[in-house]
Every structure is written in structure tokens, then in C-alpha cells.
Design a binder for these strands. Sequence first.
DNA 1: CAGTATCCATTTCGATACTG
DNA 2: CAGTATCGAAATGGATACTG
Lengths: 233, 233
Amino acid sequence: MQAVPGYGQFCPVAKAMELLDERWTLLVVRELLMGSRHFNDLRRGVPRISPALLSKRLRTLMQAGVIERRDHGGRIAYVLTDAGRELRPVVEALGCWGARWIPELGDEDLDPHLLLWDVHRNLDLDAMPGGRTVLAFRFSGVPRAVASWWLVVDAEGVDVCDTDPGHDVTLTVTTPLRTLVDLWRGQSDWSGAVRDGLVVDGPAWARRALPRWLRLSAFATVPRPAAAATGAV
Amino acid sequence: MQAVPGYGQFCPVAKAMELLDERWTLLVVRELLMGSRHFNDLRRGVPRISPALLSKRLRTLMQAGVIERRDHGGRIAYVLTDAGRELRPVVEALGCWGARWIPELGDEDLDPHLLLWDVHRNLDLDAMPGGRTVLAFRFSGVPRAVASWWLVVDAEGVDVCDTDPGHDVTLTVTTPLRTLVDLWRGQSDWSGAVRDGLVVDGPAWARRALPRWLRLSAFATVPRPAAAATGAV
DNA sequence: CAGTATCCATTTCGATACTG
DNA sequence: CAGTATCGAAATGGATACTG
């Protein structure tokens, strides 16, 4: 029989990993820490998980006391418990390590939908003008179907669209997908992104403001290790 | 095809977990951080891993740049790289979380061999007398074959024995296995352990010194959450 | 919106035995 | 000591379709 699911260790690291080393689990926790609460929001933040598996992971996390399921008048919300909130240091340590030591991304890691979802959550609404602001993104080097995106910002909040919402566009960002991902991750700054093909079209006041509107990943500021001896300048 | 092994995300947490969420991986890293360097030492610290799987995990960790394989005159050593050493905060965060939020242990988690292996690594040799010291452990409530253990401390270092080494015994610790595990993990202190059936036999000077010799898990001092509302006193 | 149900290809892993 | 070889049982989880 191979029916021993756990590690058979009393070590707290092992006991923690029995729960957390299952595929997807910590990414779901990350999304909850980022503020997602509803099933379909979680799916957006963890796009490749199947609904069945997300459902299973949520059940496991509930059993473990990491989250609670709440019914707010028909709307289901998953909220972190104290135990769940205390996973933030774990996720942060993993993210810092990943940012430092796994800089290379495969093409399959460059998910435009996820990128826009992340960006939309981090827009600095206070820095943006009143009324409606529309940011258009056009990615080069990706299939037509996922090349055009819009962020519509108004009093209601922020909407991510993959079809033209029809409003006047404030700024258009045209860029290789990888360039914007590198910027988001802090592997390049704005001037580096421009060197790598990012172009912003629109009125000067908005072009100048964009770097304040579009805040970057929480891990963008993690200091990177010095280049290895083999390495680049 | 389900041939996408990774998460398809550029998030540093996801990239880190692509490597680290594989079963056993982080426990191997934990052992390396604790000072193990050789294949069979790692097996002792991660008892239930099969040699084939350990070998595979080591290869993966090498490819990821977390460890290096060194041949010191026929003796193979696995040593952490900078990237590997920087996993310490990850392991610590996991251990702290596990110590706080997964206090319950199943009987299958109470591995006496692993306990002695951990204890032997943490003995405070400087606090122990010169010459040879022998600590005998007798666990109640476990199969005869794994009930008796000896730690032999001398100038050579510390040996873990599961058969009587034949030396004079300095102290004999008789205890339910779970009691000593709880003590090791910091879920009880010495007086609590004595209440839970731990008995130390031997000369008074040695009995008094034992708590200084036998240091506890690095996670023993993690503060535990206050009892829940349902809870105990 | 918030999930279930089903299916099976694929992978994983544990057990065991063996080797230079 | 430091692994490799082989095997098959079991679980995983991805794809897809469907439901209250």
C-alpha cells in the first residue's frame, strides 16, 4: 500500500507542507491574500485551475482552518482565518525567493489575462483623474485573440475587457507582452521597457502620469542577486 | 494532453512553487539547512523517502541551482548554493506556521528514529561533561523493536543506537513517545512532560543538567495562538 | 454566480531489489 | 557509501459538460 498521504514526521515544516505542497493550494492562498473572495475571482487569479479542483482545494483549506466560507445573502465569500492570514509571511518569502532566483520565464508563463488582472488590482485610483479613464493595451507577438485589452476606470471601479468597450481611450500602451511582464515583475524599469519596445500613445499629461497609475508587483522591488561570475555587465 | 507541468504564471510565487511544491523537496532542503550533506544522512532525516526519489529530487534541485554536488575524494557532498541558503526564510516561515496552526499529530507522525536523529543533532556538547555520556531512552506504547534507543556522546561526536551499545548509562529517560515529541516541539515544557509520564533516572547532577544538554526544536519557542473561544483554559 | 459530475490519460510514487 | 533499475498500484488532475 502507498496509502500514507503525509510525511510521517512531527516536524512543523513537514506538517505545514502536508497541507501546502499540494498543487495550486498556495496560489489560491495568494489570491485570497491579494483580496479575492469569490469563486470566480479566484479562478481569474489562478486561470489554469479547473473549477472542480478549485472547489476541492477550498474544501481542504476549510478543513485545515485556513479559510471560512460565508454566505452573504446568496453571495458566497471565502475569507481567511487568523491561520490563513498568517500565511502571508510564507507567501512573501516564496515570492521574494522566486523573484531573486527564478528570473527566466517561458512563453507559456506570459499570460496576458493574468497580467491585466494583476495590473487592474494595483492601479492607484487616487492618482488618477476623476471621470472615466481608459487604458488600452496592445500586445505584439501574441495571437490576435489575446492581443487587445482595455482597463476601464471610473467611479464604479476598474473593469478588465478583452473586447473594445467603445469608450474614448486615454492612453494606448503598445508593447511586446514580455516587456510589460518584465516591467511588472521589476526586472526592468520604465526606461528599460521603452528600450524593449514599449510605446505609450496619448496626451503628454497622461503619458507622464502612467507610471504613477500603474503600480507594479509587490515583488518588483525585491533586490536581485548580483550577476554571477559568468555573467553580464 | 495534460503535459503542462507548471502553472503558466509569471508570478514569482508560482515560479517558486513549480520547484518547491513537489513532494519531499522542501524537506530535503530543510535537512540540508540543518547541516546534512550526504545521501544517507539525508535519508535519515527524511526517513520515508525512497532512494530513487531522493536521487531524483537532488537532481531537480541541482538543475534549479539550489544545490551543488561535490566529490570530496570519493565522498559525495550536496551543498547549498546561495540560492539554496536563501530558502531558509521560506522553511522558517513554514515551520513557524506549522508550529502554530498544526498542533495535532497523528500516531504515524511519531517516528522515534527521527526524534532521536533530531535530538542527537541538537545536543549541547559544550554543556556536557568530558569523557563518555550515554543517554538511554525507553518509549512506552510503541512496538518493542523501536522502544529502546541510546545516544552515545564522546570525543568522536554523537552516535544514535537502536541496540544496546554496552556502555554504562548516564541517564535513562522513560517516557511515552508522544510526551517527548511534544517536549521537543515546544508544546509542553519539562514540568509538563513529567506530568505526562516522562521519568528520568540517574544521578541528581545529571538529571538536573539534562534540560541543558537536550536542546529542543528550533520551532519550540514559537509562540502559540491563544486558545480559541471553544477552547481550553 | 458557484459550483458538480464524469472520465481517463498521465504521472507519481512507494516497494523492493540490486550495483559499482 | 551512493546510488540505479524496475514495477505496478494509486492518485492526480485536466478537459469538458452540466446544474440549481
